[in-house]
Nucleic acid binder design. Structure first.
Length: 818
RNA sequence: GCCCGGGUGGCGGAAUUGGUAGACGCACGGGACUCAAAAUCCCGCGUUGGCGACAACGUGCCGGUUCGAUUCCGGCCCCGGGCACCA
C-alpha cells in the first residue's frame, strides 16, 4: 500500500474495474426489489458545470446506497440534445448544430465517467437521434388523431428587422438581442397540446405524491390554479352591428364585488378593442404601443399600468348602470376571457388604475370598522341593493343566481393552466410530423414513414431555420392522396423530448415501439433528482406525458416519479451559475487537481442538497485533507499486519465508547442517506468518528480488531459518496474481497446499550448545568436531584419558590422559580 | 406584479417532533516538528465585561404565544428560483 493517497491511480483503476465487470448494468431479471434512480439528463452545453456535479453525485450516492441495501438498481444517463444554444453556437463557430452537439456529448461523457458515476451506459440516449425522436413523432400523430393536439393562433415575440421569432430569453429590455429592434407581439398559427383536458387529474394526483416536496406540489397547484368563480356578461350599449356576440364576457373569482364594478377593461388584443380602434386613431396607436415588448408575463405584469377609454359602454347586468370600456395593458389576453370587470375598491390593480385615470371607486364590502381601500379581504356586503348584509359565500350564490335568471352569467370553475404550445419556428428540434395537403388538409405522417428526419448537415446563417428554406426537406407527397404537398417546418418544443425520456431508458433499444414491457418493470421512477428550477414546467409536462402514454396503452402507472429530490442551485456571487451569466467554475480543474472523490465529497459536504450552494473555492482543501487522513489511518493500521474485525471479547471503557460511537454512526448515516437525504451531516458524523478513532492509541490485538472494525465500516459508510478511495481501502483491509459485494453494514445493537444518561439542567429555561444519572431514575428522583444542584440553588433567591419542574425524558429538566 | 423558497459566528453550515444555539469543516491566531518552507500534529476561536470562576447579550427586523422559540403565530425588510419560447 502506498503511503500517499494516489487518487489518480485508484480512480482510474476503480473506473476500469466497473466498466470491465459491467458493475452497474441493470437487468430486469432479478429477484431483488427494483430501484430506478434518475437524475435529470444534461443539456450538452460543452462542459460539465458544478450543477451537474452536484446533481449527479446526489443521484449516484442514492443509487449506490440502495445497491448496498440490496436493491436491483438502474441509474441511466442521456442527453437532452435539442435546443437553442446549439443554433447560437453553430452561427458563432460556423459549424452545424448537430456536429457541435455530438462533440459536446463526447466530451461531457468522458467527464461524467471521470466523476465515477455508477451509471448503466448501455442505456445512453440522445434526444436528437432519429431512433429517439421517431417515437415522439409517432405519439404526436396518435394524439393528433385523438384530438389532443390542435392548431390555433398564438402570440410570439417578433423581431421586425431580422424577421424571426425570438425566445423570451432573446428579448432584452424589449429589444431583439441581435438586431436591437423593438420587439413586437405577433399572432401566428401553432400546434397546442390539450394539457387542460388533464388539469383536474394533474391537480388531484398531487395528493398521491407523498414523496414530493410540499414546496413543489404547492407551486404546481398554484400553477394549475383551479378557481371557483362566475362568468358575467355585460351587454354592450348600442350593440354595434358587426360585433358578435353582443355581450362582453368576463370571468371573476369575486362575484360578491360585482355591485362595486365601475368600469370594464379589455386586453389590447381583445376583439372589442380592435373594433373600437377602427374609427379612433389615438386608440389604434395605443393598442399598437401595447403590442410592443415581449410576451413574457413577468414583463407584462411589471410594466407601468396604462390604459385608454374606447368610447364604448356596457350595461351592468344587475343594476343597469352604464360602465365605460377601457383598454388596459395589465389585462392578459391569454387568461380567462381577456377582459375583466374592474372593482377598484376591492382589487389592488384596479384601484391603482382607477386612481391614475380618475375612474369612480365604489366600496361594497366591509370587513372591519375602519377598512382602508383597496380592501381585498372577504367581508359583508353593503350598498349592494338586495345583497346587503350577505357574506362572501351567500352573496356569491345569490349574485350568480341573479345573473343566471337574467341569462347574463353563471358559476364556473376555471383553471389558470393554459394549453401547451409546442410549435417552434426553429431548426434544431424534432420535426413536427404533419404534411399539409391542399386537398386533404393536415395529414399526420403514418408510422411506416417515420421518422421525419431532420437534416444534420446544414449551414446556419443566423436568420431563420434552414429547413424552412430547403425544398428537399419540405417538398413531399401527401400520405393520403399521393398529391404534391408540403411538410410542416416548425419543430417541437424541447420540453417534448424531456417529457418522456424517463420511460425510454427502460426500453432504450426497442425499435418496434416507443416503450415496451420493460417499462412496466422499471416505472415509476423511484427517485428523481434535479434542479428546483424545473419545479413547474418540466415536472408538470412529464406528469402530463406519463398520463398520455398511459392512456394510449403504453404504460400502467399514473405518475412518473414516486420520490422527488429538488436540488438547490449552485450560485456564484449571489446568482445562478450559468453560461449565459459567465460566472461558472469549471469542475474539471477540481477533478484534475484533487480527484473525483474530493470533488464529490466537497459537493455533498458543503450544503444540504435542497439548499442553494454559494460556491467558494476554499473548503475543497478540507475535503481533500480528510481523504488523505483517512488514507493514512488505514495505511498505518494495515502496515502492522492483517487482523480481523472485532466480534467478541472484553473491552476497555475507551474501546466500548468507540464501538458505541461506530454503531450509532452506522444508524445515523443510513438514516441520513435513506430518509433525510442529509449527506452533509452524514459526512460530519463519520468525520467525528474518525477524529475519535485517531485518539485511540495502542496496537494490542483487541485494539487492532476494534480499529479494523471501525475502518472497514467507515469504508462502507463513505463508499456511496467517495467510491474510488473506499474500494481501494477495502481491498487493503480485506484482501481478496470486493467492496461492491459487501452490502450495507448492520448496526450492532449490543454495542449501543447505554446505562447512564446526561440531563441538561435549566432554571427558567436557561442552561445552568448538567447531571449524569442512571437510565432507570424516576421522574420524582430527577426533580429532587435537579433542585439540589448548586447551579440551581444559586439562582433561587430568598423570596423565590420553585413553582414547577418540567422533565423532558432523556433530555432536560427545567426548574421554574419565581 | 404574481407564485414558491431562504436569511444562524469572519465563511459554508449543525441543532431531525417547541427542549443544551454554533456539531463538522474552512479561514484565522498561537505552539510543536524543520536550517527554512510546505505538509503534518497539538491548542484557541460568537459578542461584551471579568485575572478567573462566571455573567449578560446573541439565530434578518418589530411584536406575540410558551416554563422554554433558530423552530409556532402576526406584521415588515432583504436575497434567490419560477412566470408558459433558456434548459
Amino acid at each position: 500500500m502506498q503511503q500517499q493517497y494516489p487518487f489518480k491511480d485508484i480512480e482510474q483503476q476503480a473506473q476500469n474495474d466497473w466498466e470491465t465487470n459491467q458493475a452497474f448494468s441493470a437487468s430486469e431479471t432479478s429477484d431483488k426489489p427494483k430501484y430506478y434512480c434518475l437524475s435529470m439528463f444534461p443539456y450538452p452545453s460543452g462542459r460539465l458545470h458544478m450543477g451537474h456535479v452536484r446533481n449527479y453525485t446526489i443521484g449516484d450516492v442514492l443509487s449506490r446506497f440502495h445497491k448496498m441495501k440490496g436493491f436491483n438498481v438502474m441509474q441511466p444517463m442521456g442527453w437532452d440534445a435539442f435546443g437553442l444554444p446549439a443554433e447560437n453556437a453553430a452561427i458563432k463557430n460556423e459549424t452545424a448544430p448537430a456536429a457541435w452537439t455530438y462533440s459536446n456529448i463526447e466530451h461531457m461523457k468522458t467527464q461524467l465517467k471521470q466523476l465515477g458515476l455508477g451509471v448503466d451506459w448501455n442505456r445512453e440516449i440522445a434526444t436528437c437521434k432519429p431512433e429517439y425522436y421517431k417515437w415522439e413523432q409517432w405519439l404526436f400523430t396518435e394524439l393528433f388523431k385523438k384530438g389532443l393536439i390542435y392548431k390555433k393562433t398564438s402570440t410570439v415575440n417578433w423581431d421586425p428587422v431580422d424577421g424571426t421569432v425570438l425566445a423570451n430569453e432573446q428579448v432584452i429590455d424589449g429589444r431583439g438581442w441581435r438586431s436591437g429592434a423593438l420587439v413586437e407581439k405577433r399572432d401566428i398559427p401553432q400546434y397546442f397540446m390539450k394539457i387542460t383536458a388533464y388539469a383536474e387529474e394533474l391537480l388531484n394526483d398531487l395528493d398521491k405524491l407523498d414523496g414530493w416536496p410540499e414546496q413543489v406540489k404547492t407551486m404546481q397547484r398554484n400553477w394549475i390554479g383551479k378557481s371557483y368563480g362566475c362568468e358575467v356578461e355585460f351587454p354592450i350599449v348600442g350593440r354595434p352591428d358587426n360585433l358578435k356576440p353582443g355581450n362582453l364576457k368576463v370571468y371573476t373569482t369575486r362575484p360578491d364585488t360585482l355591485m362595486g364594478a365601475t368600469y370594464v377593461a379589455v386586453a389590447a388584443e381583445h376583439a372589442l378593442a380592435t373594433l373600437a380602434a377602427q374609427n379612433n386613431p389615438a386608440l389604434a396607436e395605443f393598442i399598437a404601443e401595447c403590442k410592443r415588448g415581449s410576451v413574457a408575463e413577468a414583463d407584462v405584469a411589471t410594466a407601468e399600468k396604462k390604459g385608454m377609454a374606447t368610447g364604448l359602454f356596457v350595461t351592468h347586468p344587475l343594476n343597469g348602470e352604464q360602465l365605460p370600456v377601457w383598454v388596459a395593458n395589465y389585462v392578459l389576453a391569454s387568461y380567462g376571457e381577456g377582459a375583466v370587470m374592474a372593482v377598484p375598491a376591492h382589487d389592488e390593480r384596479d384601484f391603482e388604475f382607477a386612481k391614475e385615470y380618475s375612474l369612480p371607486i365604489k366600496a361594497v364590502i366591509k370587513n372591519t370598522d375602519n377598512d382602508v381601500l383597496p380592501m381585498t379581504e372577504h367581508g359583508v356586503l353593503f350598498d349592494s341593493a338586495e345583497f346587503d348584509g350577505l357574506d362572501f359565500e351567500q352573496s356569491s350564490d345569490a349574485i350568480s343566481s341573479a345573473l343566471s335568471a337574467k341569462n347574463l352569467g353563471k358559476k364556473r370553475t376555471q383553471y389558470r393552466l393554459r394549453d401547451w404550445g409546442v410549435s417552434r419556428q426553429r431548426y434544431w428540434g424534432c420535426p413536427i410530423p404533419i404534411v399539409h395537403c391542399a386537398s386533404c388538409g393536415e395529414v399526420p405522417v403514418p408510422l411506416a414513414q417515420l421518422p421525419v428526419v431532420l437534416p444534420e448537415d446544414v449551414k446556419m446563417d443566423g436568420v431563420g431555420s434552414p429547413i424552412k428554406k430547403d425544398p428537399s426537406f419540405y417538398e413531399t407527397i401527401c400520405p393520403t392522396c399521393g398529391g404534391k404537398a408540403t411538410r410542416e417546418t416548425d419543430t417541437l418544443d424541447t420540453f417534448f423530448e424531456s417529457s418522456w425520456y424517463f420511460a425510454r431508458y427502460a426500453s432504450f433499444d426497442s425499435n418496434t415501439a416507443m416503450v415496451d414491457e420493460r417499462a412496466n418493470y422499471w416505472l415509476p421512477v423511484d427517485q428523481y433528482v434535479g434542479g428546483i428550477e424545473h419545479a413547474i414546467l418540466h415536472l408538470l409536462y412529464a406528469r402530463f406525458f406519463n398520463k398520455l402514454m398511459r392512456d394510449v396503452g403504453l404504460i400502467k402507472n399514473d405518475e412518473p416519479f414516486t420520490n422527488l429530490l429538488t436540488q438547490g442551485m449552485v450560485l456564484k456571487d449571489g446568482s445562478k451559475m450559468s453560461k449565459s451569466k459567465g460566472n461558472t467554475v469549471d469542475p474539471q480543474e477540481l477533478i484534475d487537481t484533487y480527484g473525483a472523490d474530493t470533488a464529490r465529497l466537497f459537493m455533498m459536504f458543503a450544503a444540504p442538497p435542497e439548499q442553494s450552494l454559494e460556491w467558494a473555492d476554499s473548503g475543497v482543501e478540507g475535503a481533500n485533507r480528510f481523504l488523505r487522513r483517512l488514507w493514512k489511518a488505514v495505511y498505518d493500521h494495515v502496515n502492522l499486519g492483517e487482523t480481523t474485525a472485532y466480534t467478541a471479547g472484553e473491552l476497555s471503557t475507551e474501546l466500548k465508547a468507540i464501538r458505541l460511537q461506530l454503531h450509532l454512526t452506522i444508524e445515523k448515516v443510513a438514516d441520513d442517506y435513506g430518509r433525510r437525504h442529509s449527506f452533509n451531516t452524514a459526512i460530519s458524523s463519520v468525520m467525528e468518528l474518525m477524529n475519535a478513532l485517531a485518539k485511540v492509541e495502542g496496537t494490542d490485538e483487541v485494539t487492532r480488531q476494534v480499529r479494523q472494525e471501525v475502518l472497514q465500516n467507515v469504508a462502507l459508510l463513505l463508499s456511496p459518496i467517495v467510491p474510488h478511495i473506499c474500494q481501494a481501502l477495502w481491498a487493503e483491509l480485506k484482501p481478496n474481497s470486493h467492496i461492491l459485494d459487501a452490502g450495507w453494514p448492520a448496526a450492532d445493537k449490543a454495542a449501543m446499550v447505554q446505562d447512564t444518561l446526561e440531563y441538561v439542567i435549566q432554571v427558567n429555561g436557561k442552561l445552568r448545568g448538567s447531571i449524569t444519572v442512571a437510565k432507570t431514575e424516576s421522574k420524582e428522583a430527577l426533580e429532587k436531584l435537579a433542585v439540589e444542584q448548586p447551579c440551581v440553588q444559586k439562582f433561587i433567591e430568598e423570596s423565590m419558590t420553585v413553582r414547577k419542574i418540567i422533565v423532558v425524558p432523556n433530555k432536560l429538566i427545567n426548574v421554574v422559580v419565581g
